[in-house]
Design a protein around this nucleic acid. Sequence first.
DNA 1: GGGAGATACTTTAGGCTTGAGCTATTCAGG
DNA 2: CCTGAATAGCTCAAGCCTAAAGTATCTCCC
Lengths: 155, 155
Amino acid sequence: MDLETRATVDDHRALRLWLRLLTCSQLIERHVRSRLRSRFGTTLPRFDLLSQLERHPLGLKMNQLSRLLMVTGGNVTGIVDQLVKEGLVERVDDAADRRAWRVKLTRAGAKAFAEMARAHEEWVVELLSGFSRKDADALMQILARLKEVTLENAA
Amino acid sequence: MDLETRATVDDHRALRLWLRLLTCSQLIERHVRSRLRSRFGTTLPRFDLLSQLERHPLGLKMNQLSRLLMVTGGNVTGIVDQLVKEGLVERVDDAADRRAWRVKLTRAGAKAFAEMARAHEEWVVELLSGFSRKDADALMQILARLKEVTLENAA
DNA sequence: GGGAGATACTTTAGGCTTGAGCTATTCAGG
DNA sequence: CCTGAATAGCTCAAGCCTAAAGTATCTCCC
């Protein structure tokens, strides 16, 4: 096999890897979305946003949320608007910067999130049951490298 | 460590695995979407649909596309409508079933797709450059198992 | 052949997401 | 101080996506 042929094979390898990664990700994502909808009448983006706030009890600015969730600012505006309307989240003025908000979980939001998070974890555990501990550990490590490489090359 | 504690740790393991998988997938996806947009003025769903048609020269029915792309039928209707309007795809009557269409690439569609596919593969290869052959092979295998397990458990 | 149920597709309403363009505020240098 | 550049956030149009409901056709079975 000459170099050029090998290069082509390796190229297809990268492509197939990406397609398989996407498939796996979508399979899990669809499952979780569907259950969030049917059990809690909510969506994955809202859940993700609450999840970030739960990890940051002091609150987060809109652009911090935007970075953590890997979505654009305009998107965060819309989701926060909804969650405020539902009473799960509140916008507090940022003392240090009059342009900025500090978004926090309300008491009701924290309570609602705790319930959803428990169920969410159950779903994922159930979905991955039968996936060996050994494979899971290996996958975590390889994905760590993949993330690193991708971040490097995307810059 | 008692059983209950271990169970909790394993649960978090599954959750963290899923979150990392999602992150990796999103990193690559965003990169590809952004380039499809800036270079070709198109989107990932349209590209994916063309890609499926390219693999099936005899054409595909709407519901076959829906299954292959893992999206709902209504969604496929919208995307095909657009691609027809752009002249990349055509709807042909299915001789055997008057309810159904057979969607095919037009000559222009095949040409446009070939160009995009070449670029798409380059982007992915570039993005994954530095990811070792060994890791890539291992990842392919583990993801195959993950896909299998997930499909099993989702049913 | 005829009716019940399945299937192929479309439509609709509602939510997510983006990129571009806007205002208001902050910050850094002169 | 001031002024230009950067930053925080919002709005808007357009496209993706879903679930649910609607129409047309097919298929099976009596």
